[in-house]
Design a protein around this nucleic acid. Structure first.
Length: 358
DNA sequence: TCTGGGGTCCTAGGACCC
DNA sequence: TCTGGGGTCCTAGGACCC
């Protein structure tokens, strides 16, 4: 494989840092960006707040109990999006090939630089100077090593690792350190006596394949050795777009749910229309009070972003699902966005029905 | 103390085609 | 009466990421 030099830039406590720029008097205090409703969760916590055990996805109610003195700020995503764009502009001024990941992360292809480390230092300084924001940077031969390196010493980190150094440095860490190995997989690994990355790296790939399936098993074996061949993708095109909402208290019955479905459909279609995108698959998502999540979808022959079509399809899917318990979350999704400009031919079966009905 | 919103990718099974 | 192999498309659920 080609030699590669990749940097991962991770903004430090991005949303909180942006908020602190307009409220500098809060610097050094526990600050939490979180929604206001009874079911809100923490979006970002300042490093001071993290010392109280408050992290992303902590329920806001719990965060308040953990640290009553903390300052709570409702999220302002329009602002974060705007500031994110500024940061990405700075990155692109320094590096040709940039892959943006969400609002606060990016991969940089540094292969063209004689001195990639110096280039990354310049990027870090420029982000601070131009945007007034701190970031952590990791550099490695793959996205995986770069990402883990950027996480290793944040905030304000700067870590360069070879694949071998990454293996050595994190051999004692939980497999959950690796992006892609989540809580469920960590549990399953622990059940098999694997508690560290070193143990995972030492496990036989054949054994892993037997327990986790061919694909996932071999994938885990590779991840444990920090082997990762993913390339930097400078353009990403969304394949689906959705709107969803969690109710402050559970809703029951179609009469209560359908107006919400209509509102979500309208918002979604407005966005799609503005971007001149259409999709063939219309779906709904329903989370019940027991937190079970159900999806239903219908794929049409023609792509659409027509609110009348999306709304009525979503209503029909909901009517057919007929939620058997109180509903906590409702969502609408349009997928298969603009996959082929021309649209597809109807299925033979569907075409047959059309003929019959004509 | 229950657990947001917006995404991606994978799997498994069924329908259907050649 | 017993019945292929490969491929695509679609749906539903689940794991995971930021």
């Amino acid at each position: 494989m080609e030699r590669r030099v990749i940097a991962h830039v991770d903004m430090d406590a991005f949303y909180v840092s942006v908020e602190l720029q307009r409220r500098p008097e809060l610097r050094g205090l526990p600050v939490v960006v979180a929604g206001t409703g009874p079911r809100a969760v923490v979006t970002t916590a300042s490093y001071e707040a993290r010392r109280y055990g408050i992290f992303s996805a902590t329920p806001a109610e719990r965060a308040r109990r953990l640290c009553p003195e903390a300052v709570f700020i409702p999220p302002d995503f329009d602002l974060y999006r705007a500031r994110s764009k500024e940061v990405m502009v700075v990155l692109r001024e320094h590096v040709d090939r940039v892959e943006v990941v969400g609002l606060d992360e990016a991969y940089l292809d540094l292969i063209a630089f004689d001195r990639p480390r110096a280039a990354a230092r310049r990027v870090k300084a420029a982000v601070r100077e131009r945007a007034g924001l701190g970031c952590s940077i990791g550099i490695g031969p793959s996205k995986l090593v770069a990402k883990v390196a950027s996480d290793a010493e944040k905030p304000d980190g700067f870590v360069v690792l070879s694949r071998e150094q990454a293996c050595e440095r994190f051999a004692g860490a939980s497999p959950g350190l690796i992006p892609g190995i989540g809580p469920k997989t960590v549990d399953r690994l622990r059940e098999r006596g694997i508690e560290t990355l070193g143990q995972l790296a030492a496990a036989s790939p054949a054994d892993l394949a037997r327990t986790f399936g061919e694909r996932l098993g071999l994938h885990l074996a590779r991840l444990a050795c920090f082997e990762d061949g993913r390339e930097i993708e400078t353009v990403r095109v969304a394949k689906s777009e959705s709107r969803e909402t969690t109710f402050d208290t559970d809703l029951r019955g179609l009469d209560a749910l359908e107006p919400v479905l209509d509102r979500l459909s309208a918002e979604l279609c407005r966005t799609l229309a503005r971007q001149e995108r259409t999709g063939r698959t219309i779906g709904i998502k329903v989370r019940l009070d027991d937190f079970s999540t159900h999806t239903r979808a219908h794929t049409r022959d023609e792509a659409t972003n027509d609110v009348a079509v999306v709304s009525s399809t979503a209503r029909e899917l909901l009517r057919r699902f007929d939620p058997p318990r109180p509903v906590r979350l409702l969502g609408v999704r349009v997928a298969g966005l603009d996959e082929a400009e021309t649209g597809r031919q109807p299925h033979a079966a569907a075409a047959g029905q059309l003929e019959l009905s004509m």
